[in-house]
């Protein structure tokens, strides 16, 4: 897989960044008020939700630059399509792995006392893992659009995406704290126990949306040109 070999450094960096991010949030949480464990726990987890934004940025960059370099060296667009999809799935796997990775780091740092973590909230963890497919797909879309619209438009779109995604997450959190419909959804995600069926539903929903995004970006890829 040419694209994967080419970007393995970027993927490794993504993994380390995500682990660092999650460890940081967990440590912050631990240094805070222990009695507020539940609240603190969800803060960590919600912090973990923001980590979804990393794959968005990564995939936007992958799509833009990898496609550019690949095309300038005679790469085929139809091959690129599959490789970008594989890259997106691997990003998703990296997010999952980072959750386990940070848990491992934290248990090493603080002994077997397992700190509050995403693993506590299976639905949320599933969303964070599978949700990278969606945001990754969106990032791909943006990166490919850059081939058409150019760099400035891309930067604006990426910024808009970050603002919107960040805003939506923040709105959910505030709604949860103050009570509201969105908050109810977040509460559902934060349930400490979840049936396998509901987990599968979250995963399937994310996968379906991601697949649609990929189909759309493949249409763009068919006519991708090297933008100078």
């Amino acid at each position: 897989m040419k694209l994967l070999k080419f970007n393995r450094n970027a993927l490794a960096q993504l993994f380390l960044l995500l682990v660092g991010f999650q460890v940081f949030f967990s440590v912050l949480n631990m240094l805070g008020d222990r009695s507020q464990e539940y609240k603190a726990g969800y803060m960590t987890s919600v912090g973990g939700l923001y980590l979804l934004l990393f794959p968005l940025i990564m995939m936007t960059s992958f799509a833009g630059i990898s496609v550019h370099i690949s095309l300038t060296m005679g790469g085929l667009r139809r091959a690129l399509g599959w490789q970008l999809a594989a890259l997106n799935v691997i990003c998703c796997a990296v997010v999952c792995a980072s959750q386990w990775g940070s848990m491992w780091v934290l248990s090493r740092m603080f002994g077997s006392d397992s700190p509050v973590f995403l693993a506590r909230f299976p639905r949320l963890a599933m969303l964070a893992s599978a949700g990278t497919l969606v945001l990754g797909g969106l990032g791909l879309w943006m990166g490919l659009c850059a081939q058409r619209w150019g760099g400035k438009a891309l930067a604006l779109c990426a910024l808009a995406e970050l603002v919107v995604a960040g805003g939506v997450i923040t709105w959910f959190v505030i709604s949860f704290l103050k009570g509201g419909a969105a908050g109810d959804i977040l509460a559902w995600l934060l349930a400490p126990r979840a049936s396998a069926a509901s987990l599968a539903a979250v995963a399937a929903g994310c996968a379906a949306v991601a697949a649609l995004l990929h189909l759309a970006s493949n249409c763009l890829l068919k006519k991708a040109v090297v933008r100078v």
Partner: peptide, 16 residues
């Protein structure tokens, strides 16, 4: 494409 090579001018700026 396996027989062609187009070596373009490189730039310090790439896309964005």
């Amino acid at each position: 494409l396996a027989d062609l090579c187009f070596s373009r001018e490189l730039s310090g700026q790439i896309l964005f």
